[in-house]
Write a protein that binds this DNA or RNA. Structure first.
Length: 802
RNA sequence: GCCGGCGUGUCGGAAUGGCAGACGAGGCAGACUCAAAAUCUGUUGUGGGCAACCACGUAUGGGUUCAAGUCCCAUCGCCGGCACCA
């Protein structure tokens, strides 16, 4: 009888063996085929590892382990995205240096990850807060600055009232701070910005060449928000100035019955003295300014606005005089801050026109009465009431109109994006210092590369200031410096970089993590990049993914990296929810600590369970019973020792099943179908128990297939059984396609599509014979006239009778 | 509102258009035990019948097909993302 399975002993033992043997050290032999598997590196929070973390880590650990057995040189690294607010807030509250907090958290995380038996190459660990790392983050920033892609700008930013920090648009969710949930207000500040908009087109085009799951591609495209249309100049009656608008529907120009400008539009200030209802306009502007963007959007249902009295516009295609309104449904931040309104064919314009009693002119026929219902279908509509466009479809009309506008010099084709430049400044301590000094004479001057890393100064307090300056600003010794350009007195930039900075290029550093001369050597980058498979959370598909692709594309243009896209394949895992189906949180009391599971059931059980829990990309609820079921499965594998025979080959009756299982597990591991791969192995051992026997050869194959999921136990069994070497050094089993097919199959015999009997036939049996046998089997039920006989080889016989 | 995704036993979930419910959990019955736990064996979609068997079943209503959970149309519900982007 086998000894009882003691997971603590077994797991500690093998973790030590792997460490001692440097079992998963990445080779620097660049002649072997490479495989770069990447998971998002965690933020080492004070709470320690969450049961959500092991899901993606285990999934790609399986892929990495399998690839090694298939002969690849595998890079599967891990590191720490350690700058960030929670650490800083903890430091403030407890008066501990964030560096110390980070060290402690990292140590704990590392221990926890180690206890799960991941095959990370810990020699390549990176930490974004390490000066030797952020030296290169700063270096990239300098490159961006020199290329004109980093600039400082006075602009209204999203200011979190609680974090006291500016946020990128992407970090504001439903009008509140993504991180702390506090109110976000608009505040004008001078901010470092990165011109991600310059790469908008490349970021869309690049998606065609990569293998991302569809919804990730869609959300990247939505976020960038490309639209094609035209800019058109409307003249203002009796004025020199033109009012330029952006539209995607220049085909509807004949249907324009009024215009709307955003409350912030400069034209209003320019002609304020001539406007007859200035008081009304100014009151509306104040009201709009007080609202945050969020409130403006929230109040979307009811349109508001004021007609500008004393200024009208002329429609350039028919010279009609039309009124101009101001309304906050037009945003200054998109397009030109002014629109032409075509109420018949735009929902918002229609609402507005109805409210203010403005004329609605149909210019695209095909809908119902536009006085009663807006018509926006561009696919089937035909132009009418539109002079030279009449009779054309929408696409043709657009084209003809643009040609007309360009010929007359009143408009041009124009592409717009929703994507805004990236607000890159944070007024906090725990981030990378921005390596720029401000000189009164020379302006913003980059520090010399030789001075990198520009290390964070020691400060007395990490508390952010109410005036919106980083605590670093207090450190005058550090702040006051000399200008690298003229040598005169200058001040250092005191804003730091956002957390996204360090994670925008970390995958490059893993390829050559200790390089002091470059962010990584050319050889390492040429060999390892791009990442072959990158898995991460859906919550990072718009932010981190976009930012890191932007940096990568920039570095590609700078000839720093060898490929234009960083990740060949991107997948996403679902969240692990509490047993009540809600998100795990302390306040809900449904948090599961992975340490407890490792202690009570073992790392292999936790790994198996998280892979078995359900479809990888969907969220799944935690179930302790499910954990027990997986532990039971592993124990049943353990006890196979007792029924093992000495035969090193597959037994005759199991041969097909073995080949089928190898095929299924191999394919499922590649396609994120870990749950069905494990189910197949469960079914296999159920068969062994049914027979009450497993050959040594079968056992060996099972251990190899199961090893990526449950590495500790399979190594132990491998050793107990006396197989040579270690499982991690063995080769992945092959299957023979011909042998996955059974010699005989059971097929269903149906009458009119309803199964009436089953029949065992030879795989190669002729159609006539099978049908004859089938008819025999259901002879008593064949009462009508047979109209059709269908045989799908190896599957089904269907007799159609009347 | 727009764009994705989904809807299958008691539960988590399987099913290249070809015998729905693999695998796991839970339940029930039995074995072992003084007993319990653990383990093992059997059973477990619903309705009817002693039975072999019959009928019905993948959100709802239609359709295509010899055959539909799977394809098409409509409806309802849930989840996620975007949201006055002109």
């Amino acid at each position: 009888m086998a000894e009882l399975y003691n997971h603590r002993e077994v797991e500690t033992k093998w973790q030590k063996v792997w460490d001692d043997e440097k079992a998963f050290k990445t080779s620097e032999d660049y002649s072997k085929p490479k495989y770069y598997a990447l998971v998002e590196f965690p933020y080492p929070s004070g709470q320690g590892l969450h049961v959500g973390h092991p899901r993606p880590y285990t999934a790609l650990d399986i892929v990495a382990r399998k690839r090694r057995m298939q002969g690849y040189n595998v890079l599967y690294p891990m590191g720490w995205d350690a700058f960030g607010l929670p650490t800083e807030n903890y430091a403030i509250q407890n008066h501990i240096h964030p560096k110390i907090v980070t060290e402690n958290n990292v140590a704990r995380f590392k221990n926890q990850l180690h206890s799960l038996g991941y095959s990370f190459d810990w020699d390549r660990e990176v930490n974004t807060t390490d000066p030797n790392y952020y030296k290169w983050t700063q270096w990239i920033f300098l490159k961006l600055f020199k290329a004109g892609l980093a600039y400082k700008s006075e602009m209204p930013i999203n200011w979190c009232t609680s974090c006291k920090v500016g946020l990128a648009n992407e970090e504001v969710v439903n009008g509140v701070c993504e991180r702390c949930g506090s109110e976000v207000v608009r505040k004008v500040k001078s901010q470092w910005m990165l011109k991600i908009t310059e790469y908008a087109d490349k970021l869309i085009e690049g998606l065609d060449g990569v293998d991302y799951i569809e919804k990730v591609k869609v959300s990247q495209k939505n976020w960038i928000g490309k639209s094609t249309g035209a800019e058109v100049d409307f003249s203002i009656k009796d004025k020199e100035d033109k009012l330029r608008i952006y539209t995607t529907r220049c085909d509807t120009l004949f249907g324009v019955t009024y215009m709307v400008v955003s409350p912030e539009h400069p034209i209003i200030d320019k002609y304020r003295d001539e406007l007859k209802n200035w008081d009304e306009i100014s009151a509306y502007r104040e009201q709009a300014a007080r609202k945050s963007d969020f409130e403006r959007a929230e109040l979307a249902k009811e349109k508001t606005g004021v007609k500008i009295d004393g200024m009208t516009a002329i429609n350039p295609v028919n010279n009609k005089e039309i009124p101009i309104f101001i309304s906050d449904y037009v945003l200054m931040s998109y397009g030109t801050g002014a629109i032409m309104a075509v109420p018949a064919h735009d929902e918002r314009d229609w609402d507005f026109a109805k409210k203010f009693g403005l004329p609605i002119i149909e210019v695209v026929a095909g809908g119902k009465n536009v006085q009663e219902e807006v018509y926006t279908d561009v696919a089937t509509g035909i132009l009418c009431n539109s002079g030279f466009l009449d009779g054309l479809n929408v696409a043709e009309a657009k084209e003809k109109m643009i040609a007309f506008l360009e010929e007359k010099g009143i408009g041009t084709a124009k592409t717009n994006f929703k994507l805004r430049d990236w607000v890159f400044s944070r007024q906090r301590y725990w981030g990378e210092p921005i390596p720029i000094v401000q000189c009164e004479k020379c302006g913003y001057v980059p520090i010399d590369e030789s001075e990198l890393p520009l290390e964070l100064p020691e400060v007395d307090s990490y508390m952010p200031t109410d005036n919106g300056e980083s605590p670093i600003a207090m450190m005058t010794d550090w702040v006051n410096t000399t200008c690298p350009c003229c040598g005169g007195a200058a001040k250092r930039e005191t804003d730091t970089m956002p957390q996204w900075a360090g994670s925008s290029w970390y995958f490059l550093r893993y390829t050559d993590p200790t390089n002091a001369e470059a962010l990584a050597s050319k050889e390492a980058l040429n060999y390892w990049m791009p990442v072959d498979w990158y898995n991460g959370g859906m919550e990072h598909t718009t932010l981190h993914l976009l930012y890191s692709r932007f940096w990568h594309k920039f570095l590609y243009d700078e000839k720093v990296v060898p490929c234009s896209e960083p990740y060949m394949k991107r997948t996403s895992h679902g969240m692990i929810l509490g047993s009540n189906g809600e998100k795990m949180s302390k306040s809900r009391g449904n948090v599961v600590n992975p340490d407890d599971i490792v202690r009570d059931y073992g790392a292999d059980t936790l790994r198996t369970y998280e892979m078995f829990i359900g479809a990888f990309d969907l969220s799944a609820s935690w179930s302790e019973d499910g954990v027990k079921g997986c532990r039971r499965f592993l124990e049943r594998v353990w006890k196979l020792q007792d029924i093992m025979t000495d035969d090193i080959a597959y037994s005759k009756d199991m041969e097909t099943k073995m080949h089928q299982t190898i095929k299924k597990v191999s394919n499922d591991f590649e396609n994120l179908k870990y749950n069905t791969a494990i189910a197949a192995m469960m079914a296999l051992i159920n068969d062994f128990y049914k027979k009450n026997a497993v050959t040594k050869g079968e056992f060996k194959t099972l251990l190899t297939l199961l090893n990526p999921v449950a590495p500790h136990m399979t190594e132990e069994l491998w050793q107990i059984t006396g197989f040579e070497g270690k499982v991690y050094q063995t080769t992945w089993p092959e299957y023979d396609e011909a042998k996955t097919v059974e010699a005989t199959v059971e097929i269903a015999v149906q009458i009119n599509g309803k199964t009436k009997a089953t029949l065992v036939i030879g795989k190669e049996d002729a159609k006539e014979d099978v049908i004859a046998k089938a008819k025999e089997a259901i002879a008593d039920k064949l009462t009508g006239t047979i109209v059709k006989e269908i045989y799908v080889p190896g599957r089904i016989v269907n007799i159609v009778q009347k």
